[in-house]
């Protein structure tokens, strides 16, 4: 006694959800049958793509190679530039209705601008560019993880016997026995500590610059509170204040570490998890993990930007009476 209307609804639901899932499962099973996945080879430092260094600098820095995370960084820059030109074109055309990617961009910008305004107050115009830049760079860098081919297409190189590796197969490969490893051409930029530490250094350094802009040289009494020794009434309380101000230096350094390792750890663990899930359950489950990784990517980008915003906003406040805690 099925209602024909309900029946039609069931059918369309099957067409919308069930059929694609079935097709994906069958395709995944076929791929799993012909190219069985192997335990992934995990390497922490970025892989070098060239044998000769791009630039040779004097010793403290050394040779700079073209690594696959550097390629990903260039890709991120290209995507960002394309976005910039698309938005600029739309803004110049005088069309007041934002369409497509420009609309998404405008909505995102408005949301994070309002967020900046509630935290930073009159310093919004100074702080907002850093927040927005960090947000978009980190977001696009994180989301390259979701593209097929990233982390999986690259050079094959032979490894010694006894190590897990791919057997060379397929029409275009010269069949030499022995396991191979893949050196991917593109690897997510955020899985390289150099990228995240560079962002963290920029963030913390510009925080100091904005602090000096807001408060002038007295900003540095946050770090060397010599004045407190002479002004605070019981002399030992002043001494304690002085040592607390020295501790601020350590907390500032710890910011660099926490900024960089949070982003690096989340994204590196994410890509390792993608590989391991693909090895253990090659059918369907990886799609769910990709969804989770998309969420982690946007949350980490937002966290990086918002922490920068909060530290910068804190630096513009004169410190003194109240004790503000900002740890992360």
């Amino acid at each position: 006694m099925a209602d024909p209307k309900q029946d039609a609804g069931k059918k369309s639901k099957f067409k919308e959800i069930g059929l694609p899932l079935l097709i994906a499962a069958v395709l995944g099973a076929i791929g799993w049958y012909f190219f069985p996945p192997i335990m992934p080879h995990v390497q922490l430092p970025a892989e070098k793509l060239t044998h000769h260094p791009l630039i040779s600098l004097p010793m403290p820095i050394g040779d700079i190679y073209l690594t696959n995370t550097l390629v990903a960084t260039f890709l991120v820059d290209l995507v960002l530039l394309a976005l910039v030109f698309a938005v600029q074109k739309a803004a110049k055309s005088g069309d007041l209705i934002p369409r497509g990617i420009v609309g998404v961009f405008e909505a995102t910008l408005e949301a994070i601008y309002n967020l900046t305004e509630t935290t930073a107050g009159k310093w919004t115009k100074v702080i907002f560019p850093y927040f927005a830049t960090f947000f978009f760079v980190v977001l696009i860098a994180n989301w390259t993880e979701l593209l097929p081919g990233v982390d999986s297409i690259g050079f094959l190189h032979k490894v010694e016997e006894g190590v897990h590796g791919y057997a060379a197969q397929g029409p275009f490969l010269i069949k030499q026995p022995g396991p191979y490893h893949v050196t991917p051409w593109v690897r997510v930029a955020s899985t390289d500590l150099n990228f995240t530490i560079a962002l963290a250094l920029v963030s913390v350094f510009m925080t100091q610059v904005i602090g000096v802009r807001a408060l002038g040289l007295p900003y540095f009494t946050k770090f060397f509170n010599i004045k407190a020794i002479f002004t605070v009434k019981p002399w030992w309380m002043g001494l304690i204040d002085f040592f607390v101000s020295i501790l601020e230096i350590i907390s500032e350094t710890a910011k660099i570490i926490s900024f960089s390792f949070r982003l690096f750890g989340n994204l590196f663990a994410g890509s390792v998890m993608l590989f391991v899930i693909g090895y253990l359950v090659p059918v369907l489950l990886q799609s769910a993990v990709l969804l989770l990784e998309a969420f982690v990517g946007i949350v980490q980008a937002l966290v990086f930007g918002m922490l920068t915003l909060m530290f910068m906003a804190l630096a513009t406040h004169p410190h003194g009476g109240e004790h503000e805690e900002a740890h992360a």
Binding site: N266, F268, A269, V299, Q300
Partner: peptide
């Protein structure tokens, strides 16, 4: 809440980084 979770999770992620360093580096 999601922001707070991201901060709390960061501590666990440090442990994960240390574990990965021990395993692979």
């Amino acid at each position: 809440m999601i922001l707070g979770i991201a901060f709390a999770e960061a501590v666990a992620i440090y442990c994960l980084v240390v574990a990965l360093l021990i395993l692979f580096v």
